[in-house]
Amino acid sequence: MSLVCLNTITDIAAASWDALLVDHQPFIRHAFLSALEESGCIKPETGWHPQHLLWEEHGKVLAAMPGYRKNHSHGEYVFDHAWADACQRAGLPYYPKWLCAVPFSPVSGARVMGGQQAVRQLLELLPAWFEEARLHSGHINFTNSFADSLLEQQQDWLSRIGCQYHWHNRQYRDFNDFLDTLMSRKRKNMRKERQTVREEGFDFCWYQGDELTQSQWDFIYVCYANTYAVRGQRPYLNRLFFSLLAERMPAAIRVVIAQRDQKPVAMALSLVDDHTFYGRYWGCLAEFAHLHFETCFYQGMEYVMANGLSRFDAGAQGEHKLVRGFEPTLTRSWHLLRHSALHEAVADYLQQEKLAVAAWALEARQALPFHRQQP
């Protein structure tokens, strides 16, 4: 029995890694993680040093965790910058740390993969491995219920909750069927937004990953990068990542392109699995009234209904999603802080934060547009 650390996901065969997965969510698959690494989006020079952990018995991989040694906290969507700043002021080291997550992807899902007993053994070894590797903390972001149940049994791991907004398909026949569940004023506002887009002459075309030409992928990337450029930031992902993703998992990719006068002006790229539509990347070449809402939300909602999916995960943040029927959904992450004083201070903070986030999620439901509270 042994704990193995991999410095690249390609050190394990895709079949061996994917065999540990219990569902078809695309983000944790070998293809997605290897595309991040082989494109150069993830590498030590960008502050993301792959350190994936395996638990092996008799040469067979029984459990695994995707992981990264980090010297910063960018691209995580579970914000611990204040903890790092507090350590700096106190003269304590916070970095390097180890993060178990899918880079740049605030999507809850499998983080510890394998059978329950093997995963439990892997988790029990983490504190000693952190010390051996000279890591000051460990973090596991956007966990599913399987990981939560096991981490609750581990000592010293602190739980943190967050809030996202997800839309649920309650067997709606079509968009009008969904609109019928809304209060009159909200229904009229949504129809007006969609009508404005139609009157501006936009039409929308859907594509699977292998249906897109290279020129269309170039357009998609320009739009994606532009969302960062307008904020004076560099994009996390490069053009090669999109090419590798299209090559390795095209069936999971869905792209809607907004056209006007037969010219593309905006796009939204999403991923899908058997049950969920994951809205990921959006961008446009020019600003138009309500085009963002139509391309990113309404088009996706229609796709979910037409294809019998049950949920639309539109990513992190965005209280504006509430009035469009996206409901507050709690997320969870876990944190092990080796310095005892920091552990105690953060534990106290997280208890207060938990109450505040839970209260906000309850209050936010009052902003939902439905006639009555949804189940």
Rank of each mutant, 00 (worst) to 15 (best):
M267W: 01
G67R: 06
R170E: 13
E193S: 05
T331F: 09
E199C: 01
A359V: 05
P250N: 12
F312H: 09
C223P: 00
L36F: 09
V102E: 11
E200D: 12
I140R: 02
R365S: 03
R120N: 06
Q352T: 09
E152T: 11
Y172I: 08
A251Q: 15
A347Y: 03
V357M: 02
N7M: 03
R170Q: 14
I42C: 05
D348L: 05
L244R: 12
L182N: 02
R187P: 00
A14M: 12
H339M: 00
R231E: 10
S16D: 15
Q88I: 13
H292R: 08
L291W: 02
K321C: 13
D273T: 08
L125Q: 14
Q88D: 13
I140D: 09
Q216V: 00
R311Q: 14
T46A: 06
H30Y: 04
D156E: 11
L54R: 00
Y228N: 13
H290Y: 15
E193F: 01
C223M: 07
Y207F: 12
R231Y: 14
A225V: 10
G59V: 15
L20A: 01
S159W: 08
V272K: 02
F293M: 04
G315C: 11
F293G: 01
Q25L: 06
F293E: 05
H49A: 13
L179S: 08
G209K: 12
A252R: 10
F32R: 04
Q117P: 00
K60R: 07
Y298L: 02
W48F: 14
H136L: 06
H168K: 11
K354I: 00
A361T: 04
A289P: 04
C5L: 15
H30V: 02
G91Y: 10
D23F: 10
Y221C: 04
T329W: 05
E193T: 04
F202P: 08
E287Q: 07
L350E: 04
F242M: 02
L269D: 00
H290D: 09
A63S: 05
H81E: 14
N226H: 14
N189M: 13
E302C: 12
E57A: 09
W282N: 06
P235S: 09
E152S: 13
A251H: 15
V304C: 15
A258T: 11
F326K: 03
T196K: 14
A266R: 01
H30A: 06
F288L: 05
H136R: 08
H339K: 01
L179F: 04
Q117F: 04
L182H: 02
M267V: 10
P44G: 08
Y349L: 14
Q121V: 14
Y278W: 02
H371M: 01
K354S: 10
Q259C: 15
S34E: 04
L337F: 15
Y77A: 09
W157M: 06
T227Y: 08
N307I: 08
A147W: 00
L151G: 09
A251G: 12
D210M: 03
W17P: 00
A110Q: 11
L92F: 01
D210N: 14
